Every structure is written in structure tokens, then in C-alpha cells.
Lab assay of single mutants.
Amino acid sequence: RTAFSSEQLARLKREFNENRYLTERRRQQLSSELGLNEAQIKIWFQNKRA
């Protein structure tokens, strides 16, 4: 289980509010910017949509 920092969570929530689905390219960008792997971001979005 991933423990996200408050900064990472704030960024993910802001991104989710703008778009509930990420393109592969956007997921790669977020992964690089947040220091998370793409799978972690993908799962976070899946869980948030559920």
C-alpha cells in the first residue's frame, strides 16, 4: 500500500477534479513530477472513481 504525501494527494485530487481519466502521456508526466510510478497513479484514479 502506498503512503502518499499531502503534496502528492493535493496534486492528484486537483488533477482528478480537472479530468477523471488520465491519458497515458499525462500519467507519465504526473509519475515523473510526483516521484510515483505509473501504476500507483493509475490505481489511485481507479479507486477514486469507484
Score class of each variant (00 low, 15 high):
R1H: 13
T2C: 15
T2N: 12
T2Q: 13
T2V: 12
A3R: 13
A3D: 12
A3Q: 13
A3K: 13
F4Q: 02
S5M: 03
S5C: 04
S6R: 11
S6G: 08
E7N: 06
E7W: 11
Q8E: 03
Q8G: 02
Q8W: 02
L9I: 12
A10Q: 09
A10H: 07
R11L: 06
R11H: 05
R11I: 11
R11K: 08
L12T: 00
K13M: 15
K13N: 15
K13I: 15
K13C: 15
R14K: 13
E15D: 02
E15F: 04
F16H: 03
F16A: 02
F16K: 01
F16G: 01
F16P: 00
N17P: 01
N17R: 11
E18A: 09
E18T: 08
N19K: 04
N19V: 04
R20S: 12
R20F: 05
R20G: 08
Y21R: 06
Y21S: 05
Y21E: 07
Y21W: 10
Y21P: 04
L22N: 02
L22G: 02
L22R: 01
L22K: 01
T23V: 03
T23P: 06
T23M: 03
T23Y: 03
T23A: 04
E24V: 14
E24K: 15
E24T: 13
R25S: 13
R26L: 06
R26G: 04
R27N: 08
Q28M: 10
Q28T: 07
Q29D: 07
Q29I: 11
Q29N: 07
Q29L: 10
L30N: 00
L30A: 00
S31T: 05
S31L: 03
S31A: 15
S31W: 03
S31R: 03
S32G: 07
S32I: 14
S32V: 15
E33G: 02
E33I: 07
E33R: 03
E33Y: 03
L34H: 01
L34F: 02
L34E: 01
L34G: 00
G35V: 03
G35C: 06
L36I: 11
L36E: 01
L36F: 02
L36M: 07
L36T: 03
L36C: 06
N37M: 09
N37G: 11
N37S: 15
E38I: 07
E38W: 05
E38P: 12
A39I: 13
A39N: 13
A39D: 15
Q40E: 14
I41A: 01
I41F: 01
I41P: 00
I41D: 01
K42Q: 14
K42I: 14
I43S: 10
W44S: 01
F45K: 00
F45R: 00
F45N: 00
F45T: 00
Q46Y: 11
N47A: 10
N47L: 13
K48C: 10
K48Q: 15
K48A: 15
R49V: 09
R49S: 08
A50C: 11
A50N: 11
A50T: 08
A50V: 09
